[in-house]
Nucleic acid binder design. Structure first.
Lengths: 263, 263
DNA sequence: CGGGCCATTGAAGTATGTCAAAGTTTGTGG
DNA sequence: CCACAAACTTTGACATACTTCAATGGCCCG
């Protein structure tokens, strides 16, 4: 990890943590057979693997699951059989609280691999819901761990992806535990911007696929506070907001906002 | 995972999530050669593996590292070479914030395996410090992933341990994001109590190895609030506190406290 | 085109952070 | 072994960021 920028990537997705691809294949990951032509390939499971190394994925039968907006890819409590890699679209992960309400634990963009948290109990501890029409690859966990026997680099990639999620959660924890709400919202926007950039989208203009309430739940605050923070940023000229449409007019100002007065 | 009690194990350590041992060896995990005689064995890496399965750990040279109170086992930014399994003593994990102050990201008891968060970047993103004189096993990560080639169950155990930490962080996140400070402190005490029980210590009488400030940092609040919460519990007769010595007089009342008025 | 969801904004109440001071324990060095 | 210093904890008073409650308006989808 590049520690000089770590403070700016507080909420970066797991994929953002991957080291650069080996020099041999500088700008694109080696294609696993089923992955050829997938737009998310370079941020997904085969990322960073050589062609030879990715060959062991031949043995894995990868299914595709189309999910409509609002529908669940898997639900809390379901048996754990697959890891899921986002092909396109956006997902949220949620966990039910005692009270019955939902806590949002993550947002997932193309290339993200979901489901590592199910390895403990063989049940999914969260529900994954599509925030727009989306598609994911279903990776049979059993076959995947079998494939790991052959290729050391795949073994390490699996643990790396799990570790990436761990780091992401730790940073979110630090953010929520130690900053004020405006800084959290700023960090959220910066993180999303960075993830959009990494996926080839505009880092300064994008559509929020989640509601203010979902952002609030994720950041440990209320929808009103999120809305007020966005309005405050807009008033100060950092951003333009119109409903879900976000334009980041001054990324540096936003970064400064996020870095100020930490305890 | 047992979902009926999940709400009570909010902060449970990774080890707490392991499924029961196979019927063949009901009450003790199969010994890896170096692990024979280790008190933490049943909650550690070889937990749940059969004797045959644990044999592949032969090839792993396990070193022991003695650490005095206040000293670091590894530091943030150091190269990632080993996972560490706690033999005895208590550790805290901390990450430096922008401001230079430390955020506590976890407490680790015997049997806990630390370091999975380093798999992403090949650097430790946190510092592990002993809260009392302690000892840990250093597991060479490279050898460990090699050993995974042979044994499927070891591969799964590795991912399971990483996933356990993930679940723990997610629950802590939900706790901090969605509860008031007294509930967090109650949950912290309950979690510690549970972890003590799992390790064969008294679940109702134990010594806190961490300061109020460290608890506060971990729970996203201040040392004063932690102190006030403990005093409040004591005043209501749920617990007795004397400095670091804790006696849980009424576990059920504490659970009720923790479960009340979630949003 | 209408109903429901979503977002914005205001006003008021409150939990908790902050500042401060005193007491207690632990550790250290003479 | 004692004495002093440093670190930790407790408790109080005050300030404030944020939640809560409420009302309005806009947008989208059926």
């Amino acid at each position: 990890m590049d520690f000089t920028t770590s403070s700016r990537d507080v909420l970066a997705a797991g994929g953002a943590q991957l080291p650069p691809a080996p020099a041999r294949t500088p700008s694109r990951a080696a294609p696993a057979p089923q992955c050829v032509g997938c737009g998310a390939r370079q941020r997904c499971l085969p990322a960073g693997l050589s062609e030879h190394e990715a060959r062991c994925l031949h043995a894995v039968t990868i299914g595709r699951r189309r999910v409509r907006k609002g529908q669940a890819l898997y639900r809390e409590g379901e048996r754990f059989l697959f890891l899921y890699a986002v092909r396109f679209g956006t997902f949220k992960s949620t966990a039910m609280l005692n009270s019955g309400s939902d806590q949002v634990t993550g947002f997932h963009l193309p290339g993200d691999v979901m489901g590592f948290d199910a390895t403990v109990s063989n049940r999914h501890p969260t529900t994954a819901t599509a925030l727009e029409d989306a598609e994911a690859c279903a990776l049979p966990y059993s076959q995947l761990t079998d494939a790991c026997a052959e290729e050391r680099s795949l073994r390490m990639q699996m643990l790396r992806l799990a570790g990436a999620e761990l780091v992401r959660d730790q940073r979110l924890l630090a953010l929520i535990a130690h900053t004020h709400s405006e800084q959290r919202v700023a960090a959220f926007l910066l993180s999303l911007s960075q993830r959009m950039r990494e996926r080839g989208f505009s880092p300064s203009d994008f559509l929020l696929r989640m509601t203010r309430a979902e952002i609030g739940s994720y950041l440990g605050t209320t929808l009103e506070t999120v809305s007020r923070s966005l309005s405050a940023f807009a008033r100060r000229g950092f951003i333009t907001v119109r409903r879900r449409q976000i334009h980041l007019a001054d990324l540096d100002a936003l970064r400064a906002e996020f870095e100020t007065d930490l305890p």
